[in-house]
Design a protein around this nucleic acid. Structure first.
Lengths: 118, 118
DNA sequence: TACGCATATAACAATATCCATATATAATAA
DNA sequence: TTATTATATATGGATATTGTTATATGCGTA
């Protein structure tokens, strides 16, 4: 059974560069903690945290705590059309992630993931 | 050769119920004039007109004048990912158009289209 | 020309969004 | 306990978005 996700709310979520890049980066990377996203996006921690909260509230993201860190990923029960929409956006705009993926790759001291909880 | 369409701008366009329904209705119906959209959406004429202008400015819609009427349609040179995204949204949310399509179907006195100009 | 219809735009108020700064909470380590 | 790190939230100001009302423009017709 998949989540319901109001399309207007979803588009509001994606209608901001920070949130769009975060969403696509999570789609590409699977799971990232707030500090990794902060580095990848080159943005302030409160800014990243607030946008993540918005994405979580609308149902696009799920979080889990692991020790000090909180890892975010796309919600595992996203409706199929939402996953397809994200893939389509990514494939039609491959340059959107270049800078943030590069910053993430260069980042040192990334926290280790425990065995995925589910 | 297809248009470039900034994804954040596109999502801003779709992040409003009036604009989202208009866009999907045009995808389903092909071409509609402002008065048809005004009826279908049950909205004021200036409201419809201003949202249409926004969709046109961002590149999602194209218009043509035919006598007194101005017909809008999806821009014929949309990038493939944009068309796919609209289709995906429509198929994942079939109820979005029910009310407006019904109002359109019940509308009397709809203007006749001349042979499509292009 | 004048009039009516279809559409676009302007002006304004109400509301929403965004960012930065400051502060709060939670986990871990000493 | 205290300190440190990671993350979340509150507050306030700047800016953007939205809808309504009023007005302008453009076409067709008398």
């Amino acid at each position: 059974m998949s989540l319901h996700l109001d399309p207007v709310l979803l588009f509001k979520c994606l209608a901001d560069e920070t949130r769009l890049v975060m969403s696509l980066l999570l789609q590409a990377e699977g799971e990232l903690c707030v500090c990794e996203l902060t580095c990848a996006l080159d943005a302030s921690q409160p800014k990243v945290s607030r946008h993540l909260a918005q994405l979580r509230h609308c149902g696009l993201l799920q979080d889990r705590r692991q020790g000090q860190w909180i890892f975010y990923r796309l919600h595992p029960q996203l409706p199929a059309w939402v996953n397809l929409l994200l893939q389509t956006t990514q494939q039609g705009n491959p340059d959107l992630l270049i800078a943030s993926a590069a910053r993430l790759a260069q980042m040192g001291e990334r926290p280790e993931r425990d065995a995925a909880c589910c």
